[in-house]
Computed example of a mutant assay.
Amino acid sequence: MKIFRKIRFELLGDNKTRKYILYAIGEIVLVVIGILIALQINNWNQVRKDDNALKDYLVKIKSHTLEDMRKLEKISKGRAEIAEVCKKARTSILDKTEDENLILFMASGYAFADYFFKPNTGGYEALKNSEYFGKINNTPLDSLLANYHDLLVVIAENEKSYNDFMVHQEAYLSTQFDLSLIFAYAFVSPDSLKTRATSQSEYDEAFRRYTGSAPYRNVISLAAFQFDSMIDQYSKLGAVGQSVVNQIDVLITND
């Protein structure tokens, strides 16, 4: 600045007005260029900060999606095992061989378990509520995430439909049967039951009537085919989830 000031004084002192004006214009241009460079550097820094912030959200979404996929694998396996037992029980009902397969009907009681898939949507919801969500608008990842969360809604509705029906049937059964006998038959060892005043035949008859009731059969029959639908939806969600993970890896790698 001292050098520029000295040049200005010399030009003014020598009455070189035209040169001074050209010099002044040149100085203004330099200042403007300096400002533009500073703004560009600031923009680059801000873009870098925004990209890093978005990356943090994407890493969290990837982690949650992988967690979901592990849950899907576990719940799919569990429902498949129950569905297989319920299908055999349904066949036994149609063949009128229930009395020969009481153990099978005992195992089919797992159809009354009201467990369901619990996704972790924290990372996605955090991104949606942030200022960085717009950075993935109209991208393949945006479409995949929308598809993923649409499938979550469908799965939740399907599970709720089954669980509500099952709970309603179970509530009715609890008013019609002495569940202490049913639970004892199902969970207490035969040796222990022999020491009780209640005879084995009473336990057998109570359990036979319980599993032969319409509400019980309704639940295992519904599970026999609706679980297949659930498993198919879990599989579709898992496939989309893997695509989400792959797309996030691409974006992170490109950054």
Rank of each mutant, 00 (worst) to 15 (best):
T198N: 06
K160N: 13
K55H: 09
K96N: 14
S192D: 13
I28C: 08
L251R: 05
N246T: 12
E205P: 03
T17G: 06
M166H: 03
D95V: 07
L104D: 02
S76C: 01
N218S: 15
E81G: 06
K6P: 00
A223F: 10
C86H: 07
Y148M: 13
A223T: 10
E157F: 07
T175L: 05
K19N: 07
Q242N: 09
Q242P: 02
L193G: 09
T175M: 03
A214W: 13
F165E: 07
A24F: 08
Y148C: 09
L127S: 08
L104P: 02
G78R: 14
R196K: 13
G241K: 01
K60R: 13
Y210I: 02
L72D: 02
V31P: 07
Q176V: 14
V85Y: 05
R5M: 09
D99I: 05
A111E: 05
A38Y: 12
V240Q: 06
I25N: 09
Y203R: 02
A146H: 06
W44D: 15
E125H: 00
A214E: 15
Q169E: 14
A80R: 09
Q46C: 12
E205Q: 10
Y115V: 12
N138H: 14
K128F: 05
S161R: 10
R70H: 14
L58R: 02
F227P: 05
S174T: 13
I61L: 06
N45G: 07
V59E: 08
H168G: 05
N101F: 04
F133Q: 08
E67N: 10
N45F: 14
G241I: 05
D95I: 02
T198L: 09
K16H: 10
N218I: 14
S180G: 07
F9C: 04
D191V: 10
I37K: 03
S108N: 00
Y234E: 05
D228A: 11
F207H: 01
N129V: 01
R79N: 13
I75Y: 00
L11T: 03
I61N: 08
N52M: 12
E170S: 11
K128S: 10
I182P: 00
N15L: 08
K49V: 11
G122D: 15
S180Y: 05
A184S: 13
V167L: 14
N147D: 15
A146P: 00
Y234P: 00
S130I: 05
I35S: 05
F165D: 06
V245H: 00
I75G: 01
A80D: 10
E27W: 08
V219I: 12
L102T: 05
I136P: 04
I75F: 00
G26A: 10
N147H: 10
R8Q: 10
V167F: 08
R18K: 10
L145P: 03
K77A: 11
I155K: 01
Y115Q: 12
V29D: 09
S92A: 03
V167C: 06
R209I: 04
I220T: 01
Y124I: 12
S108V: 02
R48C: 08
Y124W: 14
T65R: 07
Y234Q: 02
D142P: 03
S201C: 00
V240H: 06
G78V: 09
D56I: 13
P140I: 06
M166C: 04
P190Y: 01
E81F: 06
D228I: 11
F207G: 03
L144C: 05
A126N: 12
N129R: 07
E98Q: 13
F165L: 11
L36Y: 01
K62Q: 14
